[in-house]
């Protein structure tokens, strides 16, 4: 490979470049700047996500409080009020689904929960602070056999749409790469 003086010169220059890169990466000053960069990037992402979570929690706190106090009708009204400023927002859809489920308005609850999961996979994610995986899992386990049985009795567009939403939730719970 190294057959003449030019080859040797190029080889030496290559070694110098490599050594300089190693020195830069292992040197103290560069270590600090590298770790800063690493922290910045990871931190920025974590901060953005935590900020989103805490913003949603703060924004919807009155709804959650009403929900916990079982004032479900007023909680829905509060959501309607908030939807004027944040229409079609995933967390609002999720809470609406949860409340409607508590009120036994099951098909509408399924519709809103499926819409929420379509907008954000966090709700079926075990690791997310916004996760509602166990609630959605339970909903699918309980409602799917019922709706399948109902679909054998009668087929309406609405029933099919609800069933489709449930299958969607079941698919998201099953995992997969998306």
């Amino acid at each position: 490979m190294l057959k003449d003086r030019i080859d040797i010169l190029l080889g030496v220059l290559l070694l110098i470049c490599a050594a300089a890169a190693v020195a830069l990466l292992t040197g103290q000053g560069s270590q600090a700047s590298q770790s800063n960069m690493a922290v910045d990037k990871a931190l920025e992402r974590d901060i953005a996500y935590q900020a989103k979570v805490s913003f949603l929690e703060r924004l919807y706190a009155p709804v959650s409080e009403l929900q916990q106090a079982e004032k479900l009708e007023t909680a829905l009204l509060k959501l309607d009020e908030l939807s004027r400023h944040y229409p079609d927002e995933a967390h609002g859809e999720l809470l609406r689904g949860e409340i409607l489920l508590q009120m036994q308005a099951v098909p509408k609850a399924i519709e809103h929960l499926a819409r929420a999961v379509r907008m954000s996979g966090d709700y079926v994610d075990q690791n997310s602070p916004l996760s509602r995986r166990s609630m959605i899992n339970q909903l699918v386990d309980v409602q799917l056999p019922k709706l399948k049985a109902a679909a054998t009795q009668q087929t309406t567009g609405r029933l099919q749409a609800t069933l489709k939403d449930l299958y969607y939730l079941q698919g998201r719970l099953a995992g997969g790469c998306e």
Partner: peptide, 27 residues
């Protein structure tokens, strides 16, 4: 009607804090 409360709130005519809901019928 629950629907009128909902629509008036969405339209901004009233807010959720304006009224106490004392009771609601089954749907």
């Amino acid at each position: 009607p629950a629907l009128d409360l909902e629509l008036m709130t969405r339209d901004g005519k009233i807010t959720a804090e304006d009224f106490n809901i004392l009771g609601q019928s089954p749907i």
